[in-house]
Amino acid sequence: MTVAVDPAIQQKPLSVDEFLAHYGGDNRYELIDGEVFDLEPTGLHEEVAAFITKKICVQIDGAGLPWFVLQRGLLRPSNTGMTAFRPDIAVVDQGELAKEPLWSDQSILTLGTSIKFVAEVVSSNWQNDYARKLEDYAALGILEYWIADYAGLGGTRHIGKPKQPTLSICTLVDAEYEIQQFQDHQTIISSTFSDLKLTAEQVLRAGR
């Protein structure tokens, strides 16, 4: 079911509780600083997300790690009452869930320590992926963050000029992300999944 963002509701910033009451049952929306964003999951967007999910699930299973990929949950940073991210892909450490106060009843994470890896597939709201989420995921202590910009939508300051499909892999070092960009046939380097044997093109052109 798709729920349209109600302009009447968005006349004022929403709290997380208000967002959950109106949009919590729909995977299409997330809340950033009180504003509701439509994640715009196009077919190609979903193919890229599914490809990444498939490949990292193989790595998790092969290594016998107590991790899983979040399916429908939200990431609600504990230091804000007006933001609830819905990552395209988030790898959760099952051993950390006992520390999560909202997990059992609401499938909501609040602690960055519960998340081993996160990825966003870029849509027209690309500013959130390259700026706000980059800052917040780093502040939460999430060790690795992928920005899969399969359509080359990001600004030139992020992906260069001329713009082209780019996979940005952000690795946390001293509380800030160091960013490596991969394009075309370049082999990607992941600190979390070091055995991945993929090129940027394989990820960004998944299903095509």
Rank of each mutant, 00 (worst) to 15 (best):
M1Q: 02
A8Q: 07
I9K: 06
Q11A: 07
P13Q: 10
S15A: 03
F19D: 00
L20G: 02
Y23I: 07
G24F: 10
D33E: 13
D38W: 08
E40A: 15
E40C: 11
P41W: 11
G43Y: 15
K54V: 01
C57G: 01
I60Q: 03
I60W: 11
G62R: 06
A63M: 07
L65T: 03
G73N: 06
L75N: 01
R76M: 13
T83R: 05
G95R: 14
E96R: 14
L97T: 05
K99H: 12
L102S: 13
L109P: 08
L109V: 03
L109T: 01
L111D: 12
T113P: 04
E120F: 10
S123R: 02
S124Y: 10
S124C: 06
Q127N: 14
N128E: 11
A139N: 04
L140G: 06
E144I: 03
Y145S: 02
I147Y: 08
D149R: 03
A151E: 13
T156P: 14
K163S: 13
S168W: 03
C170G: 08
T171I: 13
L172D: 09
D174H: 14
D184A: 15
D184T: 09
T187F: 14
I188K: 10
T192K: 12
E201C: 04
Q202M: 07
R205W: 07
